[in-house]
């Protein structure tokens, strides 16, 4: 009797493990289907011009997401561009210059602290430190000085990306085969030459993947950007203009949207975010796995 129970118990357990694993995959599929089904009325109503129409007008039920698309892309790429030199330098410092020891370990933990600060706190902090600085700058350039806009959001976003890209790139860099480096040193190369001519070229795909994954994170970042970007649903004139991102328009309008097409259009934006970040993650993980395996 007891034996029978033990066999049954074991069977249930093994079955449950497989079910839980399959559920994770099903979850992802369900996400996609839910977003697709819920936004279907809007997809039909909006047509393809949704992607390039620049007019977002819920009152007249006309929806075009170009301002959000442009806002998201500029903000994310600018943030990536600002953070890139810092991330590469810190990754080199921790992965190549000083891979072991107490001090680099402390450095790594300190940089990881950046990941511990919640997005909304970054936004709040940026609102009271970066935004006044930018507003000051705008005044000097005789622009409208609100301090809120693409540039402000990008600066704060770039800080948020640093811990993420540093840890990815550091892993990639530290996987460089030692004989390769030693060969370069033995030929009389300086450290700069080893880094710029051996380490970076031989890891270029892994480093790009690190930035790609950071980009995926930047695209979906919501709270900090919503607080700082100025929320203006129009095409930006310069990097100082207020703008709007895909994630922040969802955050701001989703609970207020009443008619089906408006809600559906917001879900359609969510679907697009989902698809883009999924593709970015698939490609990025694939390259990273190959680079550090």
């Amino acid at each position: 009797m007891k034996n029978r129970w033990r066999i049954l118990e074991n069977k249930i357990f093994v079955r449950w493990l497989s079910i839980s694993a399959i559920l994770t995959m099903v979850l992802l599929l369900m996400f996609f289907l839910t977003l697709l089904v819920s936004s279907w009325p809007a997809i039909k109503a909006n047509g393809f011009s949704f992607l390039w129409s620049k007019n977002w007008d819920p009152v007249n039920s006309h929806f075009g997401m170009l301002p959000f698309l442009i806002g998201t892309l500029i903000t994310s790429f600018l943030a990536l561009l600002i953070s890139a030199p810092f991330s590469i330098a810190a990754a080199l410092f921790l992965g190549e210059f000083y891979p072991k020891g107490v001090i680099p370990n402390i450095f790594r933990n300190v940089i990881d602290l950046l990941a511990a600060i919640p997005s909304v706190v970054y936004g709040f902090w940026g609102l009271y430190t970066i935004a006044p600085l930018i507003s000051h700058l705008q005044q000097k350039m005789h622009l409208q000085a609100s301090g809120l806009g693409i540039f402000t959001a990008s600066i704060v976003l770039s800080i948020m990306l640093i811990p993420y890209s540093v840890s990815l790139i550091r892993q990639v860099i530290s996987m460089t085969p030692t004989p390769l480096k030693e060969a370069a040193y033995a030929l009389g190369s300086t450290r700069r030459e080893v880094i710029t001519k051996v380490i970076i070229p031989s890891n270029i795909s892994g480093i790009s993947a690190g930035f790609l994954l950071s980009l995926g994170r930047a695209l979906g970042e919501t709270m900090a950007v919503t607080i700082l970007i100025g929320n203006a649903p129009e095409l930006p004139h310069s990097i100082f203009s207020p703008s709007y991102t895909m994630a922040s328009v969802i955050a701001n309008e989703f609970t207020e949207a009443v008619d089906e097409i408006h809600t559906g259009s917001l879900i359609e934006i969510g679907l697009l975010l989902f698809v883009v970040t999924t593709i970015i993650n698939l490609i990025g993980r694939l390259i990273i796995k190959r680079a550090i395996a």
Binding site: A21, I22, T24, M25, L27, L28, F31, L35, L213, G216, R217, L219, G220, E221, T222, A247, I250, A251, F254, L266, I267, G270, L273, F274, T277, T278, I280, N281, L282, R285
Partner: peptide, 18 residues
């Protein structure tokens, strides 16, 4: 499944909210 977990990690949190 491991790939699905990686993808899950990258989904923007706002999309999960929707």
């Amino acid at each position: 499944v491991a790939i699905a977990v990686d993808v899950l990690q990258g989904i923007p949190s706002i999309v999960i909210g929707i």
